[in-house]
Simulated scan of single mutants.
Amino acid sequence: MSAEHYAEEQQNEVDILQSIYPTEFVQESTDPYRFSLTIAVDDADDIRPCTLQLTIEYTPTYPDELPVFEIALSDEGNDAPITDLDAELSDDDIDHLTQRTRETGEESLGMAMVFAMASNLKEAAIERLAKKTADLKRIKDERIQKEIEAEQAKFIGTQVTRESFLEWKQRFEAEMMDMARLAAEAEERQGAKRAAAAAGSMAAGAKKDSRLTGRQLFEQDKSLAMSDSRFITDGDVSVDASAFAMAQQDE
């Protein structure tokens, strides 16, 4: 094919693309032909709309070989608030879409292919976003389900099995033995305190009982009775204390 024929093929495709994309087509140069197509990805209800830009540059032998092309995200139409279910295209996604677009072009070698590349690019972007959105929804649903199950578990409690019951029984019996031991030790300490208090009371009583009364001292020490005789004056009657003590003993 001659250079003139390639140029004619390329011009014809450019004219067709301009009619299909009247506002999305932007021509940058004619030698070589270089232009861009703005592709709005907004035909699906369950994805966040976005805008892609497909830039094409014809080679001298296009369409017998792939054009030089580039895919990029555009800021146009991407300013809506993002929710937790909004999936966005990443650099890895752009790489994936570039490979898909290249495969589409290779399948169309020998004929005009830009329209097919642009159409399949849009479909692949919708497919990619729909999958990522579904993944986000699944993750959110799983999180909500776990939260519901955790809340229900507060009221249902833990299911008892034979193994868990035996473990609980062993722990319970060990706790009861510890409590009984502590109670016995406390009772033993209280008993020791009571015994010590009783011994102290008995010792105090014995000490009190060992003290002699005045009468007992008077009876045991007769000198006490005679010690007052020096205070007797004329006319006083002297009392025989010894006789009084003997009389007391006879009684």
Rank of each mutant, 00 (worst) to 15 (best):
K122A: 08
L121P: 03
I94M: 07
V26D: 11
E127Y: 04
K193T: 11
L136P: 02
L182M: 13
G235R: 09
I156T: 10
D43K: 04
E187W: 10
V68T: 14
A72P: 01
K207N: 10
L182T: 11
D228Y: 14
E103D: 13
V14K: 13
R34A: 15
Q145H: 00
A203H: 08
D46W: 02
K137Y: 04
A118H: 04
Q10F: 01
T213Q: 00
E175C: 02
A112G: 15
L73P: 03
R194I: 11
T83G: 15
D135S: 14
A150V: 00
Q11R: 12
I94A: 05
P67R: 10
E57C: 05
I82A: 11
K131M: 05
I47C: 05
G157L: 09
R171S: 00
F172P: 03
D92N: 14
Q53W: 05
K131I: 05
W168T: 03
D234F: 13
D228P: 07
L37W: 02
E173A: 06
L17P: 06
A125P: 02
Q152E: 11
D178Q: 15
G77T: 09
L136H: 06
R189K: 13
P67C: 10
T55V: 07
S36Y: 01
K146T: 09
F244E: 06
T98H: 10
R215T: 10
D42W: 01
Q11V: 03
L37H: 01
E188Q: 14
T101L: 09
Y6Q: 06
F115I: 07
R181Y: 01
I39F: 04
A203I: 07
K146H: 14
K146M: 10
V14P: 02
M226W: 09
Q216P: 01
T23I: 08
E175L: 04
S210K: 02
L73S: 06
E57I: 03
S36E: 10
E123W: 12
K137E: 08
A199L: 12
I126E: 05
T23A: 07
D236N: 06
Y62H: 12
D64H: 07
W168H: 07
K193H: 07
L224V: 12
K222D: 14
I71Y: 00
A150L: 04
L97K: 09
Q99K: 13
R171Y: 03
T98Y: 10
L109C: 08
V14G: 03
A184M: 12
Q10W: 04
R189V: 09
E127Q: 13
Q248R: 08
P81N: 08
E188V: 03
K132W: 00
R189E: 13
G214Y: 00
E251I: 15
D45E: 15
K193A: 15
A198F: 12
A196D: 12
D95T: 12
K193C: 06
D86K: 01
S210F: 04
Q11Y: 09
Q170W: 05
G77I: 13
T101E: 06
T133M: 02
A7R: 12
Q190C: 03
N78W: 02
P49Y: 03
P63W: 01
S74Y: 02
D42Y: 00
S108P: 00
A198R: 13
L85T: 11
K132Y: 05
I82V: 12
K207M: 07
Q190D: 15
L66P: 01
E13L: 14
E107V: 09
E185R: 15
F25D: 06
P32C: 12
F172I: 01
L54T: 06
T233A: 08
Q145V: 01
P60G: 00
K137L: 01
Q249M: 14
